[in-house]
Design a protein around this nucleic acid. Structure first.
Lengths: 351, 351
DNA sequence: TTGTAAGCGTTATCAG
DNA sequence: CTGATAACGCTTACAA
């Protein structure tokens, strides 16, 4: 049964032979914390270096339980927030010797295919950022014993762990700020109307405004597709026609849409922020802090969120069920840019 | 030799039993284009669905030659260009049933560790974007028979395939544009002084300017670290002190530095572009086209570059050596923003 | 077209 | 602490 050798890759057997030990000993030499005498280890490592040997992680994945691969499914790399998140995941996982298998999902599509692929590769965990997930797949991952974690989104399924920013609380904070600044006519730019994130951010905002509202506040909501272009389109549509009237403030549920708003309103109407309109966003992406924007926003603590996620992952590994979902909502931090100001100074173009 | 079963994952043996066929037949049922009778295949697939079976890619990777995993090593996700590139790689590879194992490298560090990790996982190929690579590692990948491709950078090692934009040509084009606009005093903001990319872009620019130069052009070069912050720092340092004099034009060898320049000069000196200073960048990242910038630049054809890269990969798979490196330099396209104008209209603050 | 069985290169168990 | 050896779940020659 001759079989063509698929590559010239050195195996632990060859190292073992050269070092004069068993293959098992070679394996131990490359396993941190394994029981092995120092001299043997040195001998093995020397032989390995001489032969240019490095362990075959695929073989080790097959033989052991774990691949050291984490699947990260990113919904939408057009939104810098997800880029920064992916970046953080790669960096932190790399630091702890794990690897990231990245998937992207086109807007609006379910991430079922990606999850299935991840399952095939026996990944240690699946992290889903912002994309819907079918119940079938969730149960398959459970069957496979592979943890799924949601990042920056929640789910109706309470058994699914999720790490996210306190979207409701952040929305509230922005609502207060906007109300206190004197805005009484507010336009909200929603993201994905299906998504929990947008919903919570809007709900928090509305609650804060209503709590405060001795004076009535008129709120209008439109959809901005969670994207720069979507926001520009929505704004263009909303303020088309001659002599549009503008609100006192705009609340975009994420920064990238806020930037889209600003660009569109500057370009078409030469509006000034905050003099003509106030605007706030949510996320704290870097673009929002570029000099022409200096956007007032809630900064999501991406690093803390990522670390929390990895912590949860570790916890799941240890004990099956002691994981409490409560602690997985992390507060964002208000960031004062220069797109909100006291209403006295605001000269809106409203008749 | 009892051994604890590591998971409840269904194997092809169980499917085989249920379907009343051999395990090999199950394997064939899941292999596209395999020789198998339709009725058997249907039977197998039905059994698989019933048991929630899906193939184990790790096992298949071990048994076969290929993992269907491509390692993509990204130097610097702070630069949106690399983000867009990574995005394109993930998208296109996903479309052809491959997977992306992502690595990032901290600024200035070699990507040797990442390459070694990739080798351990027996990836089908390694794509390196912008990070230095030691010769040892290159020879190791050769030994392992794993192709390495450079993306957006070249190397002294002529055996290394590389796909990149025509940096020299793009630099030339920008040089012409700047000269023709009337600039005679130019500040160049370099990126990584070691890197081929920055070097070629500068060389092309200088050549074009010298070719044209009936009038002498004064060129000064400073380093911007290829980053937004680096550019701001460099500009701040360069124009510190009272009454600085400004050049006619700035050539930042990438867009993200150009944006940094603009922000810094706007914030500190309230300069207008192009009225006070002209500026051009290179890359064509989305940020450069935001309304406050509208940066004149050379747009790198990321998609074409990525497709070319994957094409090369496929070619390497087929025939070992027929790959010609010539065709791997792809021209960029000049994009006219609004940061260059005829010098008559330029009123610099130079005494 | 199908089944049999020998790898693929590790890890993990167990006996020494 | 070390070595022998059985998995791990698949692919693939080869025989039927």
């Amino acid at each position: 049964m001759a079989r063509k050798r698929q590559s010239q890759r050195v195996t632990s057997y060859e190292v073992a032979k050269l070092a004069g030990v068993s293959q098992a000993t070679v394996s131990r030499a490359f396993t941190a914390g394994a029981q092995i005498a120092k001299d043997k280890k040195d001998r093995v490592l020397a032989a390995a270096k001489q032969l240019n040997y490095y362990p075959n992680s695929i073989a080790s994945s097959l033989a052991s339980a774990s691949t050291n691969i984490i699947a990260v499914i990113v919904g939408n790399l057009d939104n810098p927030f997800y880029v920064e998140s992916l970046h953080a995941f790669i960096t932190h996982l790399q630091a702890s010797g794990k690897h990231v298998l990245s998937f992207t999902i086109s807007q609006g599509k379910a991430c079922d295919d990606a999850v299935l692929e991840a399952l095939k590769y026996n990944v240690d965990a699946i992290i889903v950022t912002s994309a819907p997930l079918s119940n079938d797949l969730v149960s398959m991952t459970k069957g496979a014993g592979i943890p799924i974690l949601l990042f920056n989104r929640s789910s109706d399924d309470p058994t699914l762990l999720s790490v996210r920013c306190d979207n409701f609380g952040g929305g509230q904070e922005l609502g207060k700020v906007i109300y206190d600044a004197g805005a009484r006519k507010v336009l909200i730019l929603r993201g994905d109307p299906q998504g929990s994130t947008s919903r919570d951010r809007v709900a928090g905002f509305r609650l804060a405004v209503q709590d405060k509202a001795i004076e009535a506040v008129r709120i209008e909501e439109i959809d901005g597709n969670s994207s720069y272009d979507g926001a520009r389109d929505a704004i263009r549509e909303r303020f088309k026609g001659p002599n549009p009237t503008f609100p006192d403030a705009i609340y975009a549920v994420n920064d990238i849409m806020a930037i889209g708003c600003i660009d569109e309103l500057r370009e078409r109407f030469d509006l000034k922020f905050p003099e003509d309109i106030m605007i706030v966003g949510f996320d704290g992406i870097r673009e929002g802090q570029l000099q022409p924007y200096k956007l007032t926003t809630i900064r999501q603590p991406i690093n803390a969120m990522v670390l929390k996620t990895l912590e949860l992952l570790a916890a799941i590994g240890d004990e099956e069920d002691t994981v409490k979902a409560d602690s997985c909502v992390i507060p964002g931090r208000f960031f004062e840019g220069s797109t909100v100001t006291q209403m006295e100074q605001v000269g809106t173009k409203i008749p």
